[in-house]
Simulated assay, not measured.
Amino acid sequence: MIGFGWLYPHFLDNTTSLVYLYAAPTGLIPCPTLSIVIGFTLILGGLGSRSWCLVLAMMGLFYGVFGAARLGVRIDGVLILGALAAACAAVTTGCKQ
């Protein structure tokens, strides 16, 4: 998820691989930003917060489905998978409130 958000390819057509390392729209567009936040949250065990995992899951699902279905950005399906992983982490890791 972190790599996907960092190298989010949707807005960088016809460019070299090096450009992806510094020109991804992370921090400007919700999908790559949420991908990175979800990735770090999963690595850090949900930060011990079920609520945080559920908020990320809801936001990720909303932006992932909206981006894929309404805007036609099919790669946002990766964000949907990450959001489902965050939801699973909220339920299964024993996170506190």
Rank of each mutant, 00 (worst) to 15 (best):
Y8S: 03
H10L: 01
H10P: 00
D13C: 00
D13F: 00
N14W: 00
N14D: 13
T16M: 08
S17E: 11
L18D: 14
Y20L: 14
Y20H: 15
L21C: 13
L21V: 14
A24I: 00
P25Q: 05
T26V: 15
G27E: 04
G27P: 09
L28I: 05
I29Y: 14
I29P: 05
P30R: 07
P30Q: 08
P30D: 10
C31G: 02
C31F: 06
P32L: 08
P32D: 11
S35H: 01
I36Y: 07
I38W: 09
G39P: 09
G39F: 04
F40A: 01
L42R: 03
I43H: 04
I43D: 05
L44W: 10
G45H: 08
G45S: 07
G46E: 04
L47A: 01
G48D: 02
G48Y: 01
G48C: 06
C53L: 06
L54M: 09
L54A: 00
V55I: 13
M59I: 08
M59L: 15
M59N: 11
G60R: 04
G60Y: 06
L61D: 13
F62Y: 15
Y63S: 01
G64Y: 05
V65S: 06
G67N: 12
G67T: 09
G67C: 09
A68N: 14
R74Y: 13
R74C: 00
D76L: 12
G77M: 13
G77H: 12
L81Y: 11
L81D: 04
L81F: 13
G82Y: 05
A83H: 08
L84V: 15
A85R: 08
